[in-house]
Structures are given as C-alpha cells and as structure tokens.
Simulated assay, not measured.
Amino acid sequence: MEREVDLQSLKAFVLERVLDEDPVNRTIILLGSFGDSTHAIVRIEKTALSSSMVNALGENLEKVEHVEKNDIYSWFMGWLSTAARTSPDLKINVIFPCTEAHIQKYTRQQIVMVHETPALYKSIVEPYISAFPPSRTQWVTDILAGKTEADKILYRDTDSATGYVILPDMKWDLTTLSSLYLVAIALSPYIRSLRDLRRMHIPMLKSVRREAMRVVRERWGLGTGAVRFFVHYQPSYYHFHVHIVNANYAGLMGSTVGQAHLLDDIISMLECDVNEGPTIFERLTLTYGLGDQHGLYAPLVAAQADVEP
C-alpha cells in the first residue's frame, strides 16, 4: 500500500545528509527517511534558511498544507512554530520513495563542459535515453492523461501529434509573481529532447509561446517580454517540455548558459533549417555543462579526447 506523506511524516523526518544548499535561491535539499529504511528527498525553500535548522525540522514545523501529489512527488506549504503569519514560511517538495538516480540528480555536482557531436549523440546519448523505462516519466504521462494535477491545467491542446498542456511547475509556490514558473509539456512521447525537434514542430512551439503569453497576461497581467521561454539540454526528464518563467526571476541556475536554450532561438533555427536531409539539431555539436553525478558523465567525458575543440 502506498504511504502518504503528511505533517507527521515530515516531523518524523530523520536527516541522513544534506545533498545541496543554495543561499542564492534560498533552498536546501535533504536526504533522509520518515523513520524507516526507505529513502526520501525533501527540498525546502525559504527566505533565509541555514543548514543548522534542518536537524530539528520536527521541532520547528508546526503546520503543513498539502498542495499536490503526483506519483512519488509531493509538495507542501509549511509554517514554522515561531511564525504567526497567515502566509507560509516554507515550500516543501518531497520525493518518496526516491531512487539512487534521484539522489544523484539532487546532490551538489562538479560541472564539466562537454561537446556532444552528432556521432556522440548517436553512439552514447540516444542509447542512454532509450534505455529509460516508461516508469521514469509515469508522472508526466499521468498529467497528460488528466489523472493528476488536472485542476492545475491552464491550457490544453488535444492534438496527439502537436498538442501540449501548460501548468504551473512544482517549483513555483503559486503565489509569488516574481518567481512565476510554468511548464508546457508536449503530448507526443516521440519528442524526447532538443535533438528530436524538426521544422514540422514550429507551429507547436509558436503555439506554446502564444498561448503561454495569453495565459500570463489574462491571469497575472504580465505583458509582452515579461516571461522567458527556454528548453534544457540535457533535460531533467526525456519528454519534451518548455520552461516558462518570469523574466525577472534571478538566480535560476537552470536558465544559465550551458543548459538553457531560448525558445525564440530554437524556432528561428528551425525556420532557417533545410527542407531535406538531416535537420539542424541532428547536425549540431551541442556544448553544455554536465554534472559528475549524471549518468552520461563518464562516457561523454571519456569521449572528449576525440572531439576537436
């Protein structure tokens, strides 16, 4: 029987180690358990948060409000016992049970810049992506099928080939406009990453840009140029999605050079592409930062000796 995470679970959290802490983004990521042998990852975000506080998480946490649950992912708003405010002090994301892959992903990593040639994509990266079992993106499938987070969908295009949904990203607290964070997820499972984009996807990408701007304008009053659209490579999961954030969202590591590609640039590159033969994203050598905990780190770093700078 699947165990639900609640306030009592969080108060019983036993810290094993701090995976990462980021004072710029005011976050700390913890590995531990809820009193048994099953690992859990807890990500806490606060205005100011020190690592010394987390050892006494149960003593300081007075109340939590469950926001959403999707497969092994849960997130909450939390109030500390020292606070009498109506607004929460913490945003808490939980992955339970978590796997070794989750632990590696959320552990602070040393970044190395690698060059991924088309040949290295075919020989190393594509087999790596294809080896992932469907269960790794089951939570995405559940969103697209309307089984989870259905009440959060802001826009849905139902075309099976070019459709997508737009909804708030789990990293957003749903309140602070300056850190607005939405995500558009393609319905098609055949677009796994930037490498799979073709000229035929231009209408879909333009639609994402257009409809997301309409949503943020109508719901939150944000005008032209107020949001930033980008795509990660390598992405955190291999089902194509576009990140949509407030253009003033500072300190967002995932939008830095070496990982993020602006949607406008992607559309422009596809529009300049040839009509026949390999597409531009099949021909490009992509340069990006890769963490030493990533599954591609060892083979790609080893292959760099054969790549001309």
Rank of each mutant, 00 (worst) to 15 (best):
L10Y: 04
K11C: 10
K11Y: 02
A12P: 03
R17C: 06
V18G: 07
D22M: 01
D22G: 01
V24H: 06
I29A: 13
S33M: 02
D36G: 04
I44R: 04
E45D: 06
T47R: 12
T47K: 13
L49P: 06
S51A: 14
A56W: 09
G58I: 09
N60W: 12
L61V: 09
W75E: 07
W79S: 15
S81R: 15
A83W: 07
R85M: 12
D89Q: 12
L90G: 08
L90D: 09
N93I: 10
N93M: 10
A101H: 08
Q104E: 03
R108I: 01
I111T: 13
E116F: 00
P118H: 00
L120G: 00
Y121N: 10
V125H: 01
I129E: 02
S130Y: 02
T137E: 12
T137Y: 08
Q138V: 04
V140R: 07
T141W: 07
D142Q: 15
I143C: 05
L144Q: 06
E149M: 05
K152E: 15
L154V: 04
Y155I: 06
D157C: 14
T158Q: 13
D159R: 08
I166G: 09
L174I: 00
S178K: 15
S178W: 09
A186W: 01
I191W: 03
R192H: 13
S193Y: 00
R195K: 06
L197D: 10
R199Q: 14
M200K: 15
P203Q: 07
K206H: 06
V215F: 03
R217D: 14
R217Q: 15
E218S: 06
W220L: 11
V227W: 02
Y233E: 03
Q234M: 01
Y238R: 05
I244L: 07
Y249R: 11
M253H: 13
V257H: 12
G258A: 04
L262D: 10
L263T: 12
L263F: 12
I267K: 11
L270I: 06
C272L: 11
D273W: 02
E276M: 07
P278L: 11
E282L: 01
L284C: 04
L284E: 03
T287M: 03
Y288I: 02
G291W: 05
D292E: 13
G295S: 10
L296E: 08
V301A: 04
E308L: 12
E308A: 12
